[in-house]
Amino acid sequence: MANSHNRDTDVSTRTLVESMIRDDATIDAGELYDVANALGMTDQQVRLCIKRLTTEGRFTQEGRGRRAVLRATGLTRSSIEPDLEFVRFMYAQDRGQAAWDGVWHLAAFGVPESARQARDAMRDAILRHGGAPIQGGLYVSANAWEDRIQSIAAQLEVTDHIVTLTTADLTIGGIAQPRELAEHLWPLGRIADGHRRLLAAAEGFLPALRTASRTDVLTIAVGLAAEFTRAVEPDPLLPPQLLPQPWVGTAARAAVAACWAELLKSEPEQPIRLFRWYADVINEIAKPVGAHS
């Protein structure tokens, strides 16, 4: 059964609740409690989490206990959808469809102390998009990110304090060779460890899916999405030319795609949104390289 693997998956109660939202923005509380139990959570944990989320205005609740129906508010629906453009780019890189042109992309900002909150938010956004700090207020990425950086700066109203530039000639502390620069700038060992964990989880889930019950299918979907997010969030998605080869992230993502392909075969009548979010991406991956839409 799937449960032996599911209990090894570190999923927060809040992540579980948000992952169980169906296409009609509702959650079947009975199903939620079943999946929570399969993940080793108690009913009390789930009840307390639901109470917090309703207090925060993220859900409304109709009914009580396992017969209740939770409904996600607009605030929740707009804030939890994964960045599927990011996921598509990730798999395109793995398939050799996003070759690196040797250009480094830099962003610098000097937001004044009077706008400290916006400054901190800008820094966090740059790091979240894979930027590595070079020195105070200066960050680098191997991927084109100018549009996103400018969009975030506009949202935070700090556009006047942002500079973006590109170079094919980057030297830091005497290091100029691109792969050595990548090793110097990003914690590749820690990132690889996260992908090894993801690979082990996906390899454990795949055989379990073939005989999984409905609850097990949902539990695996939630666990797999959580492990995937945990592994890829700190990953700057460096091009293969900058990574040790073979790169474990490529193998881990291939194993995840195999699991999602299997999950989609048993898609429930009222699927949770996770199925829809990843279905299009997985279907794209399944196409032969060079195939047109």
Rank of each mutant, 00 (worst) to 15 (best):
L264F: 01
F109R: 04
A192S: 14
G57I: 02
T215P: 05
H292L: 13
L243C: 04
E18Y: 03
R230Q: 14
H292E: 13
A168M: 14
G130L: 09
R210N: 10
R253V: 00
A118S: 11
I50A: 01
L39R: 14
P240H: 01
G110H: 09
A98C: 05
R66G: 06
T159H: 13
I27Y: 04
E203W: 01
L206F: 04
W186Q: 06
T166F: 01
A38M: 13
K265P: 00
R210L: 03
D23L: 15
W186D: 04
Q270G: 04
T13D: 08
S293W: 03
E62W: 01
D34G: 12
N143K: 15
P133F: 04
A286P: 10
D124V: 06
E180H: 05
P244F: 04
P82F: 02
R197K: 11
W260P: 00
V232Q: 07
A258D: 14
G136S: 15
A107P: 00
T26C: 01
E31I: 03
L243G: 02
V103F: 14
T76H: 05
G130C: 09
P246R: 00
A68V: 05
P271D: 06
L165T: 14
I191H: 01
Q117D: 08
R58W: 07
S151C: 09
P187K: 07
T54D: 13
Y139R: 09
E157P: 01
V158F: 09
M1C: 04
R116Q: 08
R116V: 03
S266D: 14
A192N: 11
R7F: 09
I282L: 06
A202P: 00
T76E: 11
P268I: 10
T167F: 10
I175Q: 03
K287L: 09
A251F: 06
G40K: 11
D101L: 05
V69E: 03
P268H: 08
F89R: 09
R66N: 02
V163R: 15
Q135L: 07
T215Y: 03
I152K: 08
P187F: 10
A226D: 09
R67W: 08
N37G: 04
R148Y: 11
P244V: 04
R7K: 13
V217L: 13
G30S: 04
Q241E: 15
G137F: 00
R71C: 15
H5R: 04
I162V: 15
A279R: 15
I220Y: 00
D24T: 10
R47S: 07
F109L: 13
W260I: 03
F59A: 02
K51E: 12
E180P: 01
S19W: 02
T166I: 08
R230G: 10
K51P: 02
R58A: 07
I220N: 00
D124Y: 05
T250Q: 12
